[in-house]
Design a protein around this nucleic acid. Structure first.
Lengths: 226, 226
DNA sequence: TGTCAATTTCATAATTTCTTCACATTTGTT
DNA sequence: AACAAATGTGAAGAAATTATGAAATTGACA
């Protein structure tokens, strides 16, 4: 199936350059010249990936990324003019999956687009942690040879935590990453309920958790050295 | 923490050259001369980054990258003999995060390794001071390999002090930075109580403090050179 | 439309942290 | 040395957060 790429940049030259190369590589492209247009087109065109300039007029690229991230986990490739660490860090924090520093080679952008698409849509990476094997493709967790079936949301939440062991995620962060629908606001304690279920299924004692640890006043984290 | 680099190349000269430069830059290195060895060492040594030659005997570098990518998103720096764009493209497609064309300057490799590590582990903004490592994202402090768990407020206060060693903070300043609510007024001695707890957890003797020093009539400071 | 599983909310119990307080100890000053 | 002011500390009640079972709601699908 042909994948559609949304290109967001205020410079027409750049948009066109990327369009040409991406189309040559077999992608469908749509262009937006500012944040508002980007959000509109994101809704309307439902692209498979977004190339987003960090420095946009009016609405900054980070804000656009954040808005989109609230509703979707579409891969985002950020274009950054300067290699400043702060930009880079907040870009990645807010959900950009990769970034390219300007000036870039169009071919490199194409390569990264392909890489991102592959990573995002052919996700069969198995997370091995402690005595668990998390199989995204099968939506299953194997613990010491025994299959444990989780529901979609339980699985998603476990994956978020297990991908970055040791890192504390607030309930809000977990919700942002878990919920894709618009306007969906859920009660804080909902996350607790999921954690409870996951723990039960993994036989993870909340008093002496082997996997998911509560961090009072902060959130949850997957127990781990890393 | 010292980062470990796995170097995979069939030429001993190249492996050694890279090892020397990387070690000089403060990295730990492990070497593999073919794909199988690379996979074994990847499992056993759990490196933080892999430098991988594209052209390996028996099992090609791309295949190795692909296999590793099934279980991990460790950063991979690919070494390519020829500057062909195709290699670069497929390397990036298969999950290499960056590449260097042979013949390369060892210094450039070191620079890219640093950059990749920064990118991949960007979410660990660790404050290192004396024998402490303060991990904000993990909400914990590591002292000589031992994890110390602090509460939210304890952690916050320790961070305030440790970020600017030598600078004295009054109780009021500490409160201002710790409490976000306006009207909230707490008893002066509350800060003392927190300092007491932090000191206890860090085994910091108030009489001969190694970390948090009381400044009579002024407040507290993190003992330090600066 | 009915049913079952998943999702979400809610109420309450259990736990942890926060804050205060009283008293002990130390520090600085005269 | 004596005094005043500031800091150290253990204990305890208050406040906040998390755990959890049960109930209500939603959603997919026959």
């Amino acid at each position: 199936m042909m994948k559609k790429i949304l290109i967001v940049d205020d410079e027409k030259n750049i948009r066109d350059l990327l369009s040409i190369y991406l189309q040559k590589a077999g992608f469908d492209t749509v262009q937006a010249k500012n944040g508002q247009e980007a959000l509109d087109l994101f809704e309307k065109e439902k692209p498979h990936l977004i190339i987003l300039d960090l420095m946009l007029p009016y609405v900054n690229g980070l804000a656009v990324a954040k808005k989109i991230r609230r509703h979707s986990n579409i891969p985002i490739l950020m274009l950054t003019a300067k290699a400043e660490e702060d930009d880079r860090v907040s870009g990645l924090e807010l959900g950009a999956d990769d970034y390219v520093v300007k000036p870039f080679s169009p071919r490199e952008v194409v390569a990264r687009v392909k890489s991102l698409l592959r990573r995002s849509y052919a996700d069969e990476r198995i997370i091995k942690i402690k005595d668990l094997e998390i199989h995204p493709k099968k939506m299953k967790v194997i613990k010491k040879g025994t299959e444990i079936t989780l529901t979609t949301k339980e699985f998603k939440i476990l994956t978020i935590l297990a991908e970055k062991p040791g890192i504390v995620f607030s309930r809000e962060q977990i919700m942002d990453k878990t919920y894709t629908e618009y306007d969906e606001v859920v009660f804080d304690r909902t996350i607790d309920a999921y954690i409870k279920n996951i723990r039960k299924k993994l036989s993870d004692n909340p008093k002496h958790p082997e996997y998911i640890e509560s961090v009072y006043g902060a959130g949850y984290k997957f127990k781990g050295e890393k």
